[in-house]
């Protein structure tokens, strides 16, 4: 589903975000991406979501080489890749329902279909009763769940999450992880960047470890639990 072949990302300043990174994530896998700050986790997610393009090598998502994608195709790629952010990136001038509906509106889905799908997504994250609330009135964990509902409402085959539990206490973090596992069980491919090692260890999934832009370890599921 996600294949990196000798990918290097060099920024105009000369700083190398990623150095010669190669790996392959199968459809339906759930993978954690870890490493210290500045190791290149965010860069890797940005390249996968086509927020940036790599300098060398190939990034292939869902059998499409991203380097060959024209700018006009980028929106359609992003619809296939749901993104979840540490700071949620919600629109604070509109209620929860409208935030979650946005990807469907953008994709040109009809009104009744939108209502049905948004409620289904909100139900999945346990926020069905909050659809008329403004994001600012919600707790951090609830806001993050709204962000997740927005990412999954189009039922994308791939979900990317950048430090989704970064601001949450352990109990809320565990809840979010449970949610991700449930998406994974219905076939969604997940790539989750996190520096919360204890949480990652508990999950027992495959782990990619980055350090200074290089992929240092590719640990199979359960490797840290033994």
């Amino acid at each position: 589903m996600i294949r990196y072949e000798q990918v290097t990302k060099r920024y105009p300043s000369g700083y190398e975000g990623l150095k010669d990174v190669s790996f392959h994530i199968e459809p339906g896998e759930m993978v954690f991406l870890t490493g210290p700050s500045g190791a290149g986790k965010s860069t890797l997610l940005k390249l996968t979501g086509l927020l940036e393009r790599c300098t060398r090598g190939q990034v292939i998502v869902d059998n499409r080489n991203l380097a060959q994608m024209r700018p006009s195709e980028i929106p359609y790629h992003r619809r296939k890749v749901g993104m979840i952010f540490q700071d949620h990136r919600l629109l604070h001038d509109r209620p929860v329902f409208d935030n979650v509906a946005l990807p469907l509106v953008v994709a040109g889905v009809g009104r009744e279909e939108i209502g049905r799908r948004v409620r289904a997504a909100l139900d999945q994250v346990g926020l069905l009763k909050k659809e008329r609330s403004m994001p600012i009135t919600l707790s951090g964990g609830e806001q993050q769940r709204v962000g997740i509902a927005r990412a999954v409402v189009t039922r994308p085959p791939v979900l990317l999450a950048d430090e989704p539990t970064g601001n949450l206490d352990p109990r809320l973090s565990a809840e979010i992880m449970k949610l991700f596992e449930r998406f994974n069980q219905v076939g969604v491919t997940l790539l989750i960047a996190s520096h919360d090692v204890s949480l990652i260890r508990r999950m027992g999934k495959r782990i990619l470890v980055l350090d200074q832009g290089a992929l240092t370890h590719d640990l199979p599921p359960g490797a840290l639990n033994r």
């Binding site: 929106p75 359609y76 619809r79 993104m83 990136r89 629109l91």
Partner: peptide, 16 residues
């Protein structure tokens, strides 16, 4: 600005 960024992130076309 922020709204435009977020809308682009979730796959809005330039026309949208």
């Amino acid at each position: 600005h922020e709204e435009i960024e977020i809308t682009k992130l979730i796959g809005a076309t330039n026309a949208f």
